[in-house]
Amino acid sequence: MTQLHHPPTARIHIESRECSPQVLERLTGATYFPERLLGPAIVGTVCRGGGHLLYVTAPQMIDADQQVDYYLGLLSGGSHQGGTDGPRGARDLVRIVTLDDASTRWLSTKVLDPVSARAASVRSDMREFVDTHLRAGADVRLSYFEPSRPLELLARDLGVPGTQPSAAHIPLATKHASRKIFTAAGVPVPQGTDVCHDPAALATAVATLARAGHRRIVLKLNSTAYGGGFGNALLELDDDIASAPEERTEERVSRALPHASLVDRKI
């Protein structure tokens, strides 16, 4: 029986959360998001595959050793792939590099900072990691949390593939694009509108929904920079708006729009 040969693995993880920096500023603890995925990275790369892991994060992790020891402790009797002697031997497979930067900039921005000496040092560590493991015949990849053009360019410069679909496809994941895809495929979707580019067009579209009997309407900001509903507003319409003569409905909706309740009141 022929046994398949799997090359050793090596992964660089840059778990950068790439939404609006303005949103990140208002999310408590957002700067610590990158380190939250250390556990899955260790389990997936080291515990299950016996591979090498270079984990990049910022700001500096104050309990990095304890976190690594905890996740490596999930190894049982050295039964994982890779041949190391349990958690103690596997410790050599994990390396964490950090930047002392607690700003709300994307982690990718911190790593690619052209004037930061520390960022340049981290990029050098990444290059050395890639070159070393490619020479050893390993399957080397750059892993990141979500599609990102900067990280795609970094992967290209390192000469390794990324682990996400192309960032060019991000607009397809918006609610509006999804509605268009479902409609084209014949999948029923809730009643809505096309993208509106000015208040007058929005008033016209909402007036149509009002005349169809809708009184509570979600207005969504068509942007890939926001998440968690921060780009939404809830518009409550009175019955008398929809019952007004058609030529007056849009006027009344237009007056109601500024009173929509914003989820993110700082937009």
Rank of each mutant, 00 (worst) to 15 (best):
A205D: 04
H5E: 03
L153R: 12
P188I: 05
D63C: 05
A30E: 08
P161N: 00
R105D: 15
S148E: 06
G44S: 14
G137H: 08
G44A: 12
E15T: 00
A225Y: 10
S103R: 07
T2A: 08
L257D: 06
D65A: 08
A207Y: 04
V195L: 15
A210Y: 08
D101S: 01
V160L: 09
G227D: 14
A201R: 12
V23F: 06
T28R: 11
H133K: 01
G86A: 08
D113V: 04
H176L: 03
P34N: 04
Q22L: 15
R127K: 12
G162Y: 11
G229Q: 12
S121Q: 14
L153G: 07
Y55I: 00
T132P: 06
D125T: 03
E15Y: 04
Y71I: 12
T31E: 14
D131K: 04
A138G: 05
L38Q: 08
A184S: 13
S76D: 14
V195M: 08
G39I: 03
I181G: 03
L37W: 06
G159K: 07
D198L: 01
G77W: 04
T45H: 02
A184L: 14
L27K: 13
D194Y: 03
I62H: 12
H197G: 06
P245Y: 07
R11Q: 13
L99M: 11
A119E: 03
L54S: 05
L234G: 02
P7G: 05
A64Q: 12
H169R: 13
V206E: 09
N222M: 07
A205G: 06
R88I: 10
A260H: 01
H176G: 00
R105H: 09
G162P: 10
G51F: 02
V111T: 03
R141V: 15
T208R: 15
E35A: 13
L154E: 09
L93A: 09
S79C: 04
T104F: 00
A58W: 05
L4F: 03
V160Y: 09
S261A: 11
V130I: 01
I267G: 09
R211V: 14
R91P: 10
K175L: 01
L237Y: 09
